[in-house]
Amino acid sequence: MDNLDNKVDATAIGDPMDKKMLKAEKRKIAFTTVLWKEIKADKLALVSLILLVGIVLTVFIWSMFLDAAEVTRMNLPMVNRPPSQEHVLGTDDGGRDVLNFMVMGARNSLNIAFFVTIIAASIGVLVGITAGFYGGRVDNVMMRIVDTVSMLPFLMIIILFIVIIPRYGIVHFILLMSLFGWFGISRQVRARALQQGRLDYVSAAKTLGTPNPVIIFREVLPNLVSILSVLMTLNLANNVGLEVGLTFLGFGMPHGTPSLGNLIALARVPVVMEHRWWQWIPASLLVLVIALCINFVGQAVNRAADARQRLV
């Protein structure tokens, strides 16, 4: 066994830079190409991707032409008007144009979901990769803590926090959601890192005297890209839903701030739900389409990342 280990290390030392670059180069091409092939093979994923890109571009470009103050300003004579030529989707309980409010709201909601996903994934990767790479006691302690914390009823705790923070805005909301959104990712990353940490290229780098943090971020992290992209796409879809849910309950985006959740929350009033469909149904359908599209693309990413499930 000793002998074997030495031999492996020796070859790895042989030409580490070349070998590593080759490997990195190969993987980089492989994953994006495989991903594209996978999406092309799956008509549903392809349509979803096109639709998603279309929605995102429309929402972001359109809202660039909108004035936030204009969109959120109350216009009392125009309260609760049904769709007309002037207001394609009618007006809401404050006389605001629903279509413009929805476009701006969609941009805010997508931004929130995006940042929450990024921040939560960063925390998850940091925790998971550290625990998995070092293993042993570090792993034991860290994962025990993660297990404990992830058993908390986090929806309730987020709500509790939101009530306590005196003047909270979008930033607080994003940070809170991220704070409770990284457990799943950290577990998966840890499992991968645990396995990667035992591979030859890591021992090789260690033998060369590369500091551990450098190994973690330069050598191990790139090998986790595929699993991370899967987890992050699926999380993104969930986070869109979570923002809508929390805002609906009244514990998300402040009232009057453009957000899909705030439009849907109008349906809490039975009269709105029954008679003013234009105020909440378009936003609900938009959330639905966005969440479904992200998920269908995510399934293709998942197959691309896992060779056993690939269609092509």
Partner: peptide, 12 residues
């Protein structure tokens, strides 16, 4: 679809 569906939207 059920995995991606936000509870709020389906329930409403």
């Amino acid at each position: 679809a059920a995995m991606a569906m936000p509870t709020i939207v389906l329930a409403l």
